[in-house]
Amino acid sequence: MFPLDVLETAEALLSRYRSAGKLLATAESCTGGLIAGALTEVAGSSDVVERGFVTYSNAAKTELLGVPETTLSRFGAVSGETAQAMAEGALAASHAQVALSVTGIAGPGGGSVEKPVGLVWFGLALRGEDAAQSDRQLFSGDRTAVRLASLRHGLHLLAHAF
């Protein structure tokens, strides 16, 4: 179902978390659960993947992750501030030690000059840390290419989270 390199990355990441005794959670918007899906494609992932949230709508971001409506109205769903709030919310709503969020514009529509198609923000929150980090990426290609690049980058961030 997933490309071989994605599965190999997921397997290595899961092994690292397992050895460290860490759990992870995901909060995904534009990827629609692809990151959690790739991780759970690996047998035995249930001892590392604590939970995943697919929060495609702003209401879901607010209701499930506690993203403040003021953050969404001021910065938009596709922003570093929202990605940080999503990661922090996933951490707060889970038993995980690491939470990754992703929110972006996969296209083909929905982009603007300020926020073009392919713009994706990631958030990474670690239990015990004061605030989540955010990471901005601009991927090229069609919707599938943007989502696949987001999946790969999200796995990379998780692999290097600690």
Score class of each variant (00 low, 15 high):
Pro68Leu: 02
Leu124Asp: 13
Ala83Val: 03
Pro3Ile: 01
Ala12Leu: 12
Gly110Gln: 04
Trp121Phe: 11
Gly52Gln: 07
Ser94Ile: 07
Thr70Gly: 05
Ala36Leu: 06
Asp142Ala: 10
Gly44Asn: 04
Gly123Gln: 00
Glu28Asn: 08
Thr9Gly: 15
Ile105Phe: 01
Ala85Cys: 05
Val102Phe: 11
Leu119Phe: 01
Thr40Cys: 14
Ala93Asn: 11
Glu8Thr: 12
Val49Gln: 02
Glu41Pro: 04
Lys115Ser: 03
Thr71Arg: 00
Glu50Ser: 05
Glu114Pro: 02
Leu119His: 00
Gly66Met: 03
Tyr17Cys: 12
Glu50Trp: 09
Trp121Cys: 03
Glu11Asn: 14
His156Ala: 14
Gly118Asp: 07
Ala159Phe: 03
Leu4Ser: 11
Gly141Ile: 02
Arg16His: 10
Thr70Asp: 15
Val54Phe: 09
His153Val: 01
Glu114Met: 06
Leu64Ile: 02
Leu138Arg: 05
Leu65Tyr: 00
Phe139Asp: 13
Ala87Asp: 00
Leu155Tyr: 13
Glu8Gln: 14
Ser46Cys: 09
Arg143Val: 08
Ser19Val: 12
Ala132Ile: 04
Glu50Asp: 14
Glu69Val: 06
Ser46Asn: 09
Ala85Leu: 02
Thr9Lys: 15
Val98Met: 10
Thr103Ala: 06
Gly32Thr: 10
His153Gly: 03
Gly66Gln: 08
Arg16Gln: 10
Arg127Pro: 04
Arg16Trp: 02
Ser94Leu: 09
Val54Glu: 15
Asp5Tyr: 10
Gly44Thr: 05
Ala149Tyr: 03
Ser79Asp: 02
Ala77Met: 05
Gly33His: 11
Arg51Ala: 09
Val48Cys: 09
Thr62Leu: 01
Arg127Trp: 13
Leu4Asp: 15
Ala149His: 11
Glu28Ile: 07
Leu24Thr: 04
Asp5Glu: 15
Glu50Ile: 03
Gly128Phe: 09
Trp121Asp: 00
Thr71Tyr: 00
Gly52Asp: 08
Val67Tyr: 07
Ala96Ile: 07
Ala38Met: 03
Leu39Trp: 02
Tyr56Lys: 02
Thr103Arg: 00
Gly89Pro: 02
Gly80His: 05
Leu72Pro: 11
Met86Ile: 05
Asn58Ile: 00
Leu100Ile: 15
Leu72Phe: 04
Ser112Val: 09
Ala10Asp: 04
Leu14Met: 09
Asp130Met: 15
Phe162Asn: 13
Phe2Tyr: 15
Leu4Cys: 14
Thr82Asp: 01
Leu13Ser: 12
Leu158Gln: 05
Arg127Lys: 15
Phe122Gln: 00
Leu24Met: 10
Leu4Asn: 13
Leu158His: 07
Gly154Lys: 01
Gly110Arg: 03
Ala38Thr: 01
Ser57Val: 03
Gly154Phe: 14
Ser46Pro: 04
Gly141Glu: 09
Ala125Gly: 06
Leu13Arg: 15
Arg143Phe: 08
Thr62Ala: 13
Arg136Ala: 12
Thr31Cys: 09
Ser29Pro: 08
Ala149Gln: 13
Leu157Asp: 06
Ala145Cys: 06
Gly21Asn: 08
Thr70Ala: 12
Leu7Cys: 08
